[in-house]
């Protein structure tokens, strides 16, 4: 059930790898463009730092995805063995922790998303400032504007990818919750079954004790009877 829910609809390892590749692709131009800045523009280099930081964080997140993907696949296979309900519950709990960690990184108030918003704000602000900047010759300004426009577009694309990842992880977490609730119900059924067995055993014991008592009473003969 878990496998079908995750593998079939919500969790697509191929899509995840594609997402990781997109992350890498999105991050590359950002890094590359930081190297194309003229060395004399120290002010520009300072301003680019938030974008670099965002790129670095994205890279870290991207690197964690294949490992996360493998662990989720392994755990999903384990959860498929429904014979051990306690183990299934534990596996789902571990899965939730994994997905929760990933979701935490890309959540709207998470570190990567906030860096993304900051980087985008910087790129937009730089473009706005360049329009009014009189320090550069027209061709220089044109070059810088083009660089920042490309940077802005790449950052916007990276932020969109983060939004997609956020939705994917949120959906996955919801699926795991629903499955965990199902497992929880199974545990309760099993516990109720055990309780019933105890009651049945107790009833049997009482019945046997009662029979024994009857036999004992029946065996009592008053003197002379």
């Amino acid at each position: 059930m878990v496998r079908s829910a995750i593998g079939g609809r919500h969790w697509k390892p191929v899509a995840l790898l594609a997402f990781a590749a997109l992350m890498f692709w999105s991050a590359l131009p950002v890094t590359a463009q930081t190297q194309t800045q003229p060395p004399s523009q120290s002010q520009t280099l300072d301003a680019i730092t938030p974008v670099e930081e965002f790129s670095r964080q994205l890279e870290q997140f991207k690197n964690s995805i294949p490992q996360l993907n493998k662990r989720i696949e392994d755990s999903t296979a384990a959860v498929d063995r429904w014979t051990n309900v306690e183990r299934a519950r534990k596996e789902i709990e571990e899965l939730r922790a994994l997905v929760g960690t990933a979701l935490g990184a890309v959540s709207d108030n998470g570190s990567v998303s906030q860096l993304g918003a900051k980087a985008l704000a910087h790129a937009r602000e730089k473009l706005r400032m360049l329009e009014q900047d009189t320090r550069f010759r027209p061709e220089e300004r044109k070059f810088l504007t083009e660089q920042w426009q490309r940077l802005r577009a790449d950052t916007e694309r990276a932020n969109d990818e983060l939004s997609a990842a956020r939705k994917e992880f949120a959906d996955l977490l919801r699926t795991l919750q629903a499955n965990e609730d199902f497992v929880e119900e199974l545990v309760q059924i099993r516990q109720a079954q055990k309780a019933l067995e105890v009651i049945q055993r107790l009833t049997q014991d009482i019945r046997e004790a009662n029979d024994q008592l009857k036999r004992l009473i029946g065996g009592i003969k008053p003197p002379g009877a």
Partner: peptide, 12 residues
């Protein structure tokens, strides 16, 4: 909260 973008926000 920051304005909700595209109608959805996921917050830790």
């Amino acid at each position: 909260l920051e304005p909700v973008q595209k109608g959805v926000a996921v917050l830790k």
